[in-house]
Write a protein that binds this DNA or RNA. Sequence first.
DNA 1: GCAAAGATTTGCT
DNA 2: GCAAATCTTTGCC
Length: 245
Amino acid sequence: VSSARPPVGALFERPTLEVARAIIGWRLVRDAEGGGSEAGARRVGRIVEVEAYIGEDDLASHARFGRTTRNAVMYGPPGRAYVYLVYGMHDCLNIVTEAAGAPAALLVRAVEPLEGIAVMTAAREARAAARPRTRATAAATRRPAERDRPRQPLAARVASGPGLVCAAFGIDRRFTGLDLLDARSVLRLEPPPVDERPPDVATGPRIGIAYADEPWRSLPWRFADPQSPAVSRPTLRAAPVSSAG
DNA sequence: GCAAAGATTTGCT
DNA sequence: GCAAATCTTTGCC
């Protein structure tokens, strides 16, 4: 029997930067929920943008302070979810990489929706509605013209940002520790179809880490499919490995 | 115990 | 392009 596809876990036995490049194009899958506001359909998206955070030496990583309560799962086996709250408002999904004992993870920055787009949009709006209004939002609400024209993000950009990925897929910190490589998990990773053309991969510096010293601030540890409309921001340069054209 | 800052998103100027 | 919203985590006294 010739199996054209290696085991799902095999991808994670490589160094984090190689996993980052290879995981572009993989599917993020969430099963349909039994009830509630997120019921109705399963959600599937194509991972189009990730960032690598590697080791305690990486001054942009949550592991820079060593092992703590929050980042403990980063020190565990690969393929697990690490979800944290940033700025007191937004959940962000990471995929743990490297063998147990080595703290590293990939931040999922953007996903291109494939299935369950209506559910993603509803979940995002539900989370936005639960959020208290900013002063700017309150001011806009007083204007009838603005109030009657609610913002509707393009479907392709419904998960175009790390906080938006979690909002669209209904992911929060309770998902931390979940095995994303287990086919039985409600949220999981699946490889792309074997006949799908591998995407180009562009790289650039990581976003939102100005607090980190060099060289960490400028390392090209952000990876994205430059062809995808779901990428959160333009990428700077093409990666050397990508095929021409 | 307390103070500071953050792997973001949003709407207005 | 800017500033606000929000609360957990971390470092330090």
